[in-house]
Design a protein around this nucleic acid. Structure first.
Lengths: 219, 219
DNA sequence: GGGGGGAACACTGTCGACAGTCGGCACGGA
DNA sequence: TCCGTGCCGACTGTCGACAGTGTTCCCCCC
């Protein structure tokens, strides 16, 4: 009786799929920082028209993964170690606000529980890529639980740059994403200790900043 | 419901000019929140092709000035009063970081002086539009003087939403942008008093948040 | 052998057209 | 009157093509 229902994936536009493909290609390191991204070449390899990849590239440009070169040409972006440090300081400010709002929220208990569960997914053994995803998911969740949509948006805008920074030091990120590093945050939220929570987040970010900044310097 | 045609003597690309034209059209209130923005119609009134306005619209979408409606159609965005409050809390966090970094900076004195000059441009008598510009310029300058490029970027990403919020309560913004409100910030920076500076910024943002949130509610 | 001119080349900017799809409306039947 | 249904218009998604412009490299002349 029922016709094959169109899966939601087929609903996505070519532009969205191209965008996702390019983003993951860059983030997986298939393109090196500084590599030139030609519209025609990408269009050919993705099997779509130039206009379509063009839109995807412009989107990536606004995300900060791609930057405009000499003649309007686009190339893969990279971050200096100073920018990495700056990035983490902004993150600290944002996530500091997040923990503040989570603690002040009426649903603090439920939020803490959710975060506790997310921390458990931060395995110390998994693949590097999985660990990165779990780490970013934890911090995004923290922002989401604040209930501040503008905060979530701002954080997500930084996410692209974050991933670039992480990519630079991908080989050494191990100790940063460990479960130990995140448990104190959850505990401070559970206790409702604003000062401690903010301080812990700050320290976490400072340590991560140093880590990845050094990684970029030696690259 | 029309935008002025673009002048042809400019060296910038049509896409950039279309973007600027659309942005100022929305921000000047020529389009009301919820208004549908059709690609063909805009292309006609701007005198460019659909693909060109399409890119501009996508840019505006990422800026948050325009949001995707029912069928992938774009319409002018508006903010709820709750979102306005959230927005200002994020701004407070960002600008709090800014004053912290400015004070910690080696060029604190020079920065304070620059800010002092910017405050003077916050006239109490000028046109509403000019006052808004001067106010935003002051806060942007504050971020820029921190020397944190990622912070500047994050702030600018919020700027579009800011202007939407301001637009909603455009008639009542008078007391918010007054010089008195900003002088204490500069003074705290001059004294190097971090705690006071952050507190003043926070209060400034909270007051502004209430102001514009109420304005959007009664609109 | 070195430098200048010029001709392909390789891009991006911009455009007009075709096709798919969604919403609304009129019409006919119960 | 109310509901199903098929048509129509509008709008976006996507594409291929043309034009303008740096860039590069080769060839000729000094």
């Amino acid at each position: 009786m029922s016709v094959e229902s169109l899966s939601a994936l087929d609903r996505s536009t070519l532009r969205e799929r191209s965008l996702e493909a390019l983003r993951s290609a860059i983030l997986s390191g298939r393109y090196r920082p500084g590599d030139h991204l030609g519209e025609v070449e990408l269009a050919g390899s993705l099997g779509v028209s130039r206009g379509t990849v063009r839109e995807a590239l412009r989107h990536l440009q606004q995300e900060g993964l791609v930057t405009t070169g000499n003649r309007g040409m686009l190339r893969v972006n990279s971050l200096t170690s100073a920018e990495v440090r700056e990035l983490f300081r902004v993150r600290a400010a944002l996530e500091g606000l997040a923990v503040r709002e989570v603690i002040a929220s009426a649903r603090r208990e439920a939020a803490a529980e959710t975060l506790r569960a997310a921390v458990e997914r931060l395995s110390d053994e998994d693949e590097a890529a999985a660990r990165i995803e779990a780490d970013l998911a934890f911090h995004l969740l923290l922002c989401q639980l604040s209930g501040n949509s503008m905060l979530v948006e701002a954080w997500q805008r930084l996410e692209g740059r974050m991933r670039v920074a992480i990519l630079n030091g991908a080989a050494w990120q191990a100790p940063m994403m460990a479960r130990d590093r995140h448990v104190p945050i959850v505990e401070a939220i559970e206790r409702g200790d604003v000062e401690a929570a903010v301080r812990v987040v700050d320290e976490h970010m400072t340590a991560a900043a140093e880590h990845f900044a050094e990684a970029t310097e030696s690259a």
